[in-house]
Amino acid sequence: MSKILYCRCAFAKVVPDATKDAVLEKLCESGAAFESVADLCEMAARKDERLNDLLAGDEGVKIAACYPRAVKWLFHNAGVSFPNDGERINVLNMREQNADEIMESLTQNDDE
């Protein structure tokens, strides 16, 4: 099972509330373990070591946040190399995609 990171984007109103609430609600209904952060930008600004931990290893990682280009370079900003491996790292965009689509990707088994 992939690791899951959910970003609340709590410092701005750019991610639709309905989408981020629906994704979190469905994550809470699922049996999945997940890491959730108030704001990925803030974490990147602090160069939080947990971002490094998240991408370490060979496990798949699914990130529910915003635009993949922004997420990739936020990790870089935090000093964490973001692998160009679409198979292993999957960024779901809560600014554009709907909650059902995102949840389908988040809860999909890695071997499917």
């Binding site: 979190l24 049996g31 373990a33 997940f34 108030a38």
Partner: peptide, 20 residues
């Protein structure tokens, strides 16, 4: 959901650990 969303909105980071 209520607990995690409110903790996130206050600025905390929350990890949910399940039995598995």
């Amino acid at each position: 959901f209520a607990l995690i969303s409110q903790m996130l909105d206050k600025g905390y980071a929350v990890l949910r650990v399940t039995a598995s």
